[in-house]
Amino acid sequence: MTQITLLHTAEAHVATFDALRDRITPGAVLHHVVRPDWLATARASGPTEALIKEITEAIQSAQGTALCTCTTIGDMAETAGALVIDRPAMTEAARIGGPILMAYALESTAAPSRAALERALARADKTADVIPLPLPQFWPLFESDERDAFAACIAGAIRDALPTAKPACILLAQASMAPAAALLSDLDTPVLTTPETALRAALAR
């Protein structure tokens, strides 16, 4: 029986991944660890020794494959042996090439997402323009559980950026942004989301 332990920093991701599991592989067992305090600490103080210790211990005690669904703490989780949610999507973005429009709604996501994408490009032996699209003004909608409004605002901002950016692909760098992809399904440009690609990668481990 396949088991995956998911490390979340938002309760909303539990339902997202349970729904994906039910669609992709109903027999898999998902164990959810929800720690919003990890994100709060990382945003306020960065990768403190205490935070690294807690994340590492959670990964070492995980049942099955450990999958971290938070980009902000992703580097800490990856160092401890977890699969990080955005890595498979980064690999796909590197395969497609640039320009890559990288949208994110948390400033603490910007640096680790950019670094992960640059590493993916290096592994693919490619160079590509990465166009950051910071959308922190919409994060309060997610935090207040206004998910439909959050997705609509993200999708609208991406549409506004397309004429100037002219990207080869669009990367929604955070799991919370994934619902915006459905609102962009009419585009010819590929829209890459992180939850499904990450779960499939975890299942393949």
Rank of each mutant, 00 (worst) to 15 (best):
P112A: 03
A58K: 01
I55D: 02
A175Q: 12
D37M: 07
W139V: 08
A94R: 01
A50T: 15
A58S: 07
V34L: 05
A157F: 05
T9A: 08
A28M: 13
D37N: 09
D160T: 14
A66G: 10
A10W: 02
A80D: 10
G64C: 09
A116Y: 09
T127G: 13
L101E: 06
F142G: 03
M177I: 06
I158A: 03
L187Q: 08
T16P: 07
D186S: 12
R114I: 13
A198N: 09
C169F: 10
F138S: 12
L83E: 07
L141E: 10
L117Y: 04
L51H: 00
M177R: 03
A66I: 10
A111R: 12
H32S: 07
V29N: 09
A168M: 00
I96E: 02
I52S: 12
R123N: 14
A151M: 04
L141Y: 10
G98C: 08
A152T: 14
T48P: 11
D86K: 01
E92V: 15
D160P: 03
A124M: 04
A201Y: 03
L199S: 01
G156S: 08
A40H: 07
P132V: 01
S144V: 01
S185K: 15
P132A: 02
C70D: 11
C153Y: 05
L51G: 01
D18T: 04
Q137R: 14
P36F: 00
A82G: 04
A124R: 03
A12Q: 11
D125R: 13
M90C: 14
V14Y: 05
Q3S: 15
A110Q: 13
P195Q: 06
A12V: 14
A157I: 03
A10V: 12
E196T: 07
G98I: 09
E118C: 12
H13G: 02
A77L: 03
E196C: 11
R87F: 07
I100P: 09
A82V: 03
T127V: 12
S113N: 12
L67R: 04
A178H: 10
A182N: 14
F17T: 05
G156K: 06
F17Q: 06
A175L: 11
T189F: 01
T9M: 03
F150D: 04
T2A: 12
R35A: 15
L121K: 02
K166S: 10
P140H: 09
S185I: 14
S113I: 07
L187G: 13
A93P: 03
L192F: 00
K166R: 13
A42Q: 14
D145W: 00
E196S: 08
A151H: 02
T109E: 02
L117M: 08
T9E: 01
A105D: 02
S45Q: 11
L183S: 04
D75I: 14
A149R: 10
T5F: 03
L141W: 06
A201F: 04
L51Y: 00
E49P: 11
S185M: 12
E49L: 12
A202D: 05
D22H: 11
I170H: 08
T65W: 04
E92Y: 10
P112W: 01
A105F: 02
I85Q: 08
W139H: 06
D188T: 15
A42R: 14
T127W: 06
R159P: 10
Q63P: 01
L183M: 11
E49H: 13
D145Y: 02
A120Y: 03
I85Y: 08
Y104D: 08
T193L: 06
L171C: 00
